[in-house]
Each structure stands twice: as structure tokens, then as C-alpha cells.
Design a protein around this nucleic acid. Structure first.
Lengths: 268, 268
DNA sequence: CAGTGGTCTAGACCACACT
DNA sequence: GTGTGGTCTAGACCACTGC
């Protein structure tokens, strides 16, 4: 592939890309390197479901041939995608689409850990779904999910217990359209982590998330559900989870009991 | 540099490395790629203070010549180091040692943000040092810092206020030896972030940190200092900060008021 | 202009997994 | 052995910075 065209983007790098977007007007010329374009193309394949979570994607040489670039360029694109946890490389085997299921990393977004003792094998939580209903999005929820107020959403409430102690009370909201058909039975019957179900049943893969933490006091209702006295300090965790393209697909509000657990975070 | 030697590590890659460690006995052969060895060598230079925070390090070609490897290999080593925030690349200028000062990122490890309004320009906190004393490490502190109980440590207490509202009460402990000479006056007179002072005055650069968060209720003492009623829910943040080589250099326990701020975390 | 990091290529060889 | 990702090289050219 030649890069003779100077400042602005050279011609589209792939043969199979009708260059869907790129409205028309001259915005920022914004030179973008070839490997970034390759990255976008792979990303498009992931979004389009060409390769599903857990799938093996084509080898680097194959992709290089398809996109008419060198293996090194494909490699750099895949490097970044795997650094972002979208792909997983396995030497000798190939490159796979990351998934929330199967891996030993069951709860990839749950940062709660038992204090001290820290049995590396965190006891599998005891999950209980309290509620699952379809309703029109209140404005706050709509805003978080990038919807218009009144659009349908699912609301789920559940409790997680460790060693019989209710530790997490969560309410979560999902956009109605992509999750059409969700039901309490489906959630209750599914054994694994919730995000694994989202992948297998709805083809929705959560890629990253933003969390906002606060310390709060248990109100009457949550205290009752978690068998605590009102006023008990709880960690409030609000999460927006995004799928490909930074599209919000879940808003979650959790209350964590932290007298025997803590929220672990690594800074760098 | 030739890589003819097969499985085990090839001969040391640099000319100026007396191969200090590598005890003797055959542990794990553990093949390590060239770029990892280069990375270690650069890291050693950083630890040894050959280049200090903010300094320009030699160019890729210079390092390649010095270590007798190709530019690409040095590049990959630097890529990783800059991904770990130890180095910062600036196109056209060179590669610099990362620092907590100068950058616009004043509080690199502080995850507390104002709610909603979120003036991107977070008001510079009003810092007040309450105490700074030298004492013998209690066993818990010693354990956190990798010291023996009774070894000297500094204990500092300070309050951060935003818009006049006391929001963070922190106690922190530093090992006595590396921080010899620390005083309340020094802390109080220094304008910028604390980690910047550690770099400039003690040559200690914090590289990464581990935090454990819990929700707690304000006790009498902290309530009084923060002008709250006892029982007010506070976010407890325990941090161990590490310098190069995963050596712990600070233990910090903070209480955050979170009624108008939140702790922000990005998951991926 | 020269010097730096950033991108891209082409080719060689190594380490690992499967058959 | 074949095919995969992983490492390493050498050289070309581009983009940015500052003299």
C-alpha cells in the first residue's frame, strides 16, 4: 500500500470498505496512520459481529493480505486492540475476540475483594434476582444511557451474597431495544456472570466502564434488604458500561457493604 | 547484537553492565527478549538517578548504539516504559523522564472529582499541614512499608479543602531513611503537590500505587477536624505508593467527604 | 536546516501449539 | 512439520520541534 498522498488521509486502505462515514465537509484533515485505519477496520468487524466473543480472528498474515498492508502494520493495530482488552493473543494459536465468559476472570469489572484473608479463589457469589421489569426511562436513566426520556428500558434489581452475607445490592438499567426479550427467568437461570449472558443472548459485549464512588448511609429500604441497620455506611458505586464505539449500554447503581470487603484499585 | 545463543538468556546485551544480580544457581532459564533486557537497563538508569524526573534521556539512536541493538528494539522498550508512565515521549523533542511536577496533571493519583459541574479546572486545593513528626513505626505501618517495627518513620497529617470546605483528611507515613530531613516547614512552604516535593527534595519518585476503599462513618476526631457530625459517611482510601522496583515508599490513609465529590475510576 | 520520535516495509528467525 | 504469534533487524520516509 502506498502512502504517497501527503498530509490528508490517503485512500482507504481496504478493498472491502465502502467508506461509510466521513460526512463530506472538510473538518480537520487529521492525518491518521495506517495502523489506526486497520484498527478501525478490525473494530468495525467486531461491532458488526463478523467475529463473536471467543472467536478466532484471521491470522496477521491473512489480515495483512486482505488489507494490503504489511504484517507489521496489522500487528501494531492488534497490539493496541489487545492492550484495550478487545482482543487476546495466544502464541501458537492465534488471536481471539475477548469475552467475559469462560476466562478465569469471572467478574472483570467487579473490584470488590475480601479483606486480608483474600482467598485468591473468591467464593462464587450467591446471586439472587429480586426484580426485572420493563418500563419507560426516567429522564436521569435516559440521560445516562444516551436515550430519550420515555424510551423503554429494563430495570433489574439483584443481591449478591458472600458466605451467606448480603454484600451487594444493585439496580441496573438496560436499553430496551438491544435487550428485547430479557426476563427474570433468563437472568435467574443463567449461572455465570451477567455480562457473559449479555454476550451470549444479546450479542452485547461490554468493553469498558466508568465508575463514580461515594460513601453513603443505608436508607430504610436498602438496609432492610441487606439486613443492616439504617445509617450503616455503604459504598455507592455508579457505573456506566460501554460497548464498542463508546455506546453506553448499561447504567448500574450498586451499594457495597465494605466491613469485610474493600474496593481495590491500582493507580499508575 | 547476535541472538544465536538458544534457549537461555544470551549474553548480557550492554557493554556497561557488570551483570550485578543473577545469583548463580540455575533457577528458571526464563528466556527474556532483548527489548525486556534493554527496558531493565533503562530502568536501572532511572533508579540510579542517571536521569532525573523531567530530564531528557538519550535519543533512541543513541541508546541503540550504546546497547548495540537496533533502534526498533530500543523503541519497543521505551514504548513499554512510556505505557507505564515512567517515560514521556514528545515527537520532535525527545523522550523525558516522567514527573509529578510541572505537567498540568497536578494530582496524578488523586481520583476525587467534583460532582456534575466538574469545572475541568479543578480549583487548586487549599492545603493545610496539621502535623509532621518522626516516630518509631508501629507494626501495622512497618508492615505496609516493608520495614521492621520500630524503625523510624515520618507521620504527616493534613487537610485539603475545596472552596473552603474541608474535604480530605489524610494521615501518611514515610520511611525515615529516604526522607531524612522532612519537616512541617518544608511541607507547608512547598506550593505544589506533595509528590513533586518528594521528587525534588528527596529524589523519590512514586511510580504506581494500590488503593483500598471502604465506606466508613466519621469518628469523633475526624468529624471535629472536618467540621462534620460524627457518623457522617466518609470514603476511606488506603494507599500504598511504590517507587521503582515495587518498593513501597508511602502508606497513606485518607478520609474523603463525598457529598459534593466522587471518586472516579475507569475500568477496562 | 538537522535532530527527534512516528510510521511502514520486508525479511529472517524464534517460541509455541497442534497434528 | 505447519502455522501461529513474538522478536529483531535495517532502511526508508513522514511529522514535529527548534535553530
Amino acid at each position: 500500500m502506498d502512502l504517497t498522498t501527503p498530509a490528508t488521509n490517503p485512500k482507504a486502505p481496504a478493498s472491502e470498505t465502502p467508506a461509510a462515514s466521513e460526512g463530506g465537509a472538510a473538518t480537520t484533515p487529521a492525518f491518521s496512520p495506517l495502523y489506526q485505519q486497520i484498527k478501525s477496520l478490525i473494530l468495525r468487524g467486531l461491532q458488526a459481529g463478523e467475529w463473536k466473543p471467543g472467536d478466532l480472528i484471521p491470522s496477521e498474515l491473512e489480515l495483512a493480505a486482505r488489507f494490503k498492508v504489511s504484517q507489521g502494520t496489522v500487528r501494531k493495530a492488534i497490539d493496541e486492540l489487545s492492550a484495550e482488552n478487545l482482543l487476546v493473543r495466544r502464541q501458537g494459536k492465534g488471536t481471539f475476540v475477548a469475552t467475559h465468559s469462560e476466562q478465569q476472570v469471572q467478574y472483570r469489572f467487579l473490584r470488590l475483594e475480601p479483606d486480608a484473608g483474600s482467598r485468591a479463589t473468591q467464593v462464587p457469589a450467591d446471586r439472587r434476582i429480586l426484580d426485572c421489569r420493563r418500563l419507560r426511562a426516567p429522564s436521569e436513566i435516559a440521560r445516562m444511557l444516551g436515550l430519550r426520556a420515555g424510551e423503554p428500558v429494563f430495570e433489574v434489581r439483584r443481591v449478591l451474597a458472600f458466605h451467606g452475607v448480603p454484600t451487594i445490592l444493585e439496580d441496573l438499567w438496560l436499553p430496551g431495544t438491544p435487550f428485547k426479550g430479557l426476563s427474570l427467568e433468563m437472568l435467574a437461570s443463567h449461572p455465570g456472570a451477567m455480562y457473559a449472558l449479555f454476550e451470549s443472548q444479546f450479542g452485547v459485549r461490554m468493553v469498558r466502564a466508568d465508575e463514580k464512588l461515594k460513601a453513603v448511609s443505608a436508607d430504610g429500604e436498602s438496609a432492610q434488604i441487606m439486613k443492616l441497620t439504617p445509617g450503616f455506611p455503604l459504598l455507592s458505586v455508579e457505573r456506566i458500561a460501554y460497548t464498542y464505539n463508546d455506546t453506553p449500554m448499561e447504567f448500574r447503581r450498586g451499594l457495597y457493604r465494605t466491613d469485610h470487603h474493600h474496593y481495590h484499585n491500582e493507580l499508575s
